[in-house]
Amino acid sequence: MTTQQPDATRLDRNWDELLQELRVTQTGVQLLSGFLLTVPFSSRFEDLDRVQHATFLAVFSGSVLATALLVAPVAFHRLLFRQHQRRWLVEAANLCARAGLTVLALTTSGVLFLVYDLVVPRELAASAGALTASLFVMLWVVLPLLVVRSRGVDALTEE
C-alpha cells in the first residue's frame, strides 16, 4: 500500500523529474537539428533525388517541431513562474514531452531512412526506417506498458 503525498509535494516532485528527463532529450534533439542544418550546404545535397529531398525536409521539420515541444515546458515555466499554476505546468509539460518524444522517434527513424537510402537500395532503407520506428515503439511504449500490466493496478498509483 502506498501513502499519498500532499498534492503540492507530489506536483513539485513530478515537475523536477520531468525537467530532468527533458534535459536529456533537449540536448539530443538540438544536436540532431544542428547536424541537419549542415546537410543542405554539403556538396552532395544537389545529388539527392526528389524522395530524399522530401525526406530531408520532413526530418528537419520534425527536429524543429520536437525541439519546440521539448523546450516548451521551460517557456511555460518562465511565463507562469510564481503564478500558482504548478498542476497546469506538470500536465502541459507531460503532454509536450510525450508529443516531443513521438516526433523525435519519427524524426530519428526518418533520418535513419535517409542515411540508408544514400547507401543501400530504397527498399532496404525503408525496412531499416520501419524497424527503427518499431524499436522505439517497443522500448518507449510496449515495454513500460508490459511492466505496468505485470505488476497490476498498484503500479499505477506509485510515482
Score class of each variant (00 low, 15 high):
Val115Ile: 04
Leu37Cys: 10
Ser63Trp: 02
Gly100Val: 04
Leu37Thr: 14
Val51Asp: 11
Thr107Pro: 03
Val137Trp: 09
Phe56Val: 12
Leu37Trp: 11
Ala68Asp: 02
Ser33Pro: 07
Glu123Asn: 01
Thr132Met: 05
Val119Asp: 13
Leu106Arg: 03
Val147Asn: 06
Leu139His: 13
Thr55Trp: 00
Thr55Phe: 04
Ala126Tyr: 08
Pro144Tyr: 08
Val71Pro: 03
Leu57Met: 11
Arg82Glu: 07
Arg122Ala: 01
Ala58His: 07
Leu112Asp: 05
Phe81Tyr: 13
Ser61Pro: 07
Leu48Tyr: 04
Val74Cys: 10
Ser43Glu: 14
Ala126Asp: 07
Val141Trp: 14
Ala105Thr: 08
Gly100Thr: 06
Leu145Met: 09
Leu139Asn: 11
Leu79His: 07
Arg151Met: 15
Phe60His: 15
Asp49Arg: 05
Gly34Asp: 02
Arg44Met: 08
Arg82Tyr: 05
Gly100Glu: 06
Ser150Asp: 05
Leu131Thr: 10
Leu145Thr: 02
Val51Gln: 13
Phe45Asp: 09
Arg87Phe: 13
Trp140Arg: 05
Leu139Glu: 12
Leu31Thr: 10
Ala54Met: 12
Glu46Tyr: 08
Ser33Phe: 12
Val141Ala: 15
Arg82Asn: 00
Arg86Tyr: 06
Trp140Ile: 09
Gln52Val: 00
Val51Trp: 15
Val71Ser: 03
Arg149Leu: 07
Trp88Val: 06
Ser63Glu: 02
Ala68Gln: 05
Val119Thr: 14
Ala75Val: 12
Phe113Pro: 06
Arg98Met: 11
Gly62Gln: 01
Thr107Val: 00
Ser127Trp: 15
Arg44Glu: 05
Leu32Phe: 10
Leu135Glu: 08
Ser63His: 04
Arg149Cys: 05
Phe56Tyr: 14
Glu123Leu: 01
Ser42Pro: 03
Val64Phe: 06
Phe60Thr: 13
Arg98Leu: 12
Ala66Pro: 13
Phe60Asn: 14
Phe81Arg: 14
Val147Arg: 09
Leu65Lys: 09
Leu89Met: 08
Asp49Val: 09
Ala130Glu: 07
Val71Cys: 04
Gly100Ala: 07
Asn94Ser: 15
Ala128Asp: 10
Arg98Ala: 13
Arg149Ala: 07
Thr67Ser: 03
Pro73Val: 06
Phe136Asp: 00
Leu57Tyr: 14
His84Lys: 10
Gln52Lys: 02
Leu135Ile: 08
Arg44Phe: 11
Leu139Ile: 11
Leu135Arg: 10
Thr55Gly: 00
Val59Glu: 00
Arg82Gly: 06
Arg86Gln: 13
Val59Ile: 04
Asp117Ala: 15
Phe35Tyr: 05
Leu69Ala: 09
Ser43Trp: 11
Ala72Thr: 15
Ser150Trp: 06
Trp140Asn: 03
Val39Asp: 00
Ala97Lys: 06
Leu31Asp: 10
Leu139Cys: 13
Leu57Cys: 07
